[in-house]
Every structure is written in structure tokens, then in C-alpha cells.
Amino acid sequence: MELIPRAPTLEMITFYERRTREHIERVARCLTLLAEATSHGDELRERARNHDASKFGTEERVPYIWLTEYHRRRRTGDPLQYPPGVAEQVARAVQHHLSVNRHHPEFHADPNEMTEVDLIEMVCDWTAMAQEFGQDGGSARGWADKTIGQRVMFNAEKRRFVYAMIELLDRQLAAAG
């Protein structure tokens, strides 16, 4: 049986830092493309500069290192068991992340309160995840299909806007190469 480290290892920290920065860069690229293609340019460029910054703050960094390692190991078939107390820290960090980042529907009392900029950043976040995991040709469409109407109840107008932004971003990404 593998010994569970009490603190994140250097390997875990290094992987987390690289993976999180790459995710933020993918989101920023998508936001920048949509900044040029929509009327929300300045706001989207600002979101690109600040996306997921809370993951490097004291409330989230160490628990997110554990969470990232948990998912990395799950994907490789080598499951990780958290040390005592870490699962609770991870749960608190995830709740904190959702409560301070407007691009998550959970930030809002009602996801239909999300602004167009919030929704665009959400689409860019989903796109970045699809790209990272090689899903749906790097499109957020699969994330939207499994989330909207299941976990997140958007009204028809929000749903149409999200899918329109996915289509626009997919075209922008294809054109950018």
C-alpha cells in the first residue's frame, strides 16, 4: 500500500502550477478571440487577465493541488486517497472558488442572473477543459449538452446565447488555427 503524503509533494505542486497556468492561458486565448468578435472587448480582456486567479490564493491553492492530483491520478488509474482532513479542505476550497468567480453558475443565486460576459467566460472555461481533455474537438458543446438542463437550468434566452457563443468561438478557433 502506498504511503499517503501529509503535504503536497514537489511533483504535485509542479503539475498543479503547470496545469493551472496552461488552463488559464487557454481560457485567456478564447476570451481574447471573443473580445475581438463581440461588443464586450474590454470586459473580456479584463476577465482574461484575472481568470481563476483565486486558485493561487491562500483559500484555494493547497486544496486545489490535492484536487488536481486526485483527478490526474484517477485518469491514470492510480487513485489517490486524501490524507485525513484534506477532503474537507478541498470541499471548502471548491465552494470558495465557486463563490468568488462570476463565470460559475453557482456564484449566482439564479444562473439566469449571469451577464453575457459571465456566460462568455463560462463558455471559454468549458472550451479550455474540452481542449485539455481532447473532448468534442475542443468545443464546449459537449460540456454544455451535459450541463445545461441537468446541473444548470438556464432559460431559453440564456441557453440560446451560450450555444451561439460556443458556435462563434468554435469558428474563431478554427480560423485562428
Results as ranks from 00 to 15, higher is better:
12 M>E: 13
112 N>A: 11
25 E>P: 00
116 E>T: 02
174 A>I: 09
105 P>N: 00
124 C>D: 10
168 L>H: 08
80 L>Y: 14
86 V>W: 12
40 H>W: 10
46 E>S: 08
14 T>I: 05
102 R>E: 14
47 R>E: 08
20 T>N: 06
46 E>V: 05
166 I>D: 15
177 G>R: 15
115 T>Q: 04
11 E>Y: 09
176 A>C: 13
42 D>I: 04
101 N>A: 02
169 L>A: 01
146 K>E: 13
45 R>V: 13
113 E>W: 14
92 R>F: 11
61 R>C: 12
36 E>T: 03
122 M>T: 08
15 F>E: 11
33 L>S: 01
39 S>T: 12
177 G>F: 14
44 L>Q: 13
80 L>I: 00
164 A>E: 15
35 A>F: 02
100 V>H: 07
62 V>Q: 13
74 R>Q: 15
79 P>A: 00
117 V>M: 05
90 V>I: 06
73 R>C: 11
22 E>R: 07
67 L>M: 09
118 D>I: 00
19 R>C: 13
160 R>M: 10
171 R>Y: 03
4 I>N: 10
77 G>H: 10
127 T>Y: 11
56 F>M: 04
34 L>H: 09
85 G>Y: 13
116 E>M: 05
173 L>T: 02
67 L>S: 00
137 G>N: 07
28 A>W: 01
176 A>Q: 15
134 G>Q: 12
25 E>Q: 02
53 A>M: 07
47 R>Y: 10
63 P>F: 04
166 I>E: 12
53 A>K: 07
119 L>A: 00
135 Q>G: 08
124 C>E: 12
159 R>A: 12
74 R>F: 13
124 C>S: 08
121 E>D: 14
67 L>C: 10
41 G>S: 03
96 H>E: 12
18 R>K: 14
151 R>Y: 11
140 A>N: 07
11 E>S: 04
97 H>N: 03
141 R>W: 07
163 Y>V: 07
127 T>Q: 06
68 T>Q: 14
142 G>P: 13
64 Y>Q: 01
28 A>P: 01
172 Q>G: 10
81 Q>K: 15
37 A>L: 07
176 A>T: 08
163 Y>A: 10
118 D>R: 03
5 P>I: 13
80 L>A: 09
77 G>I: 01
78 D>G: 01
155 N>A: 03
65 I>R: 05
75 R>L: 11
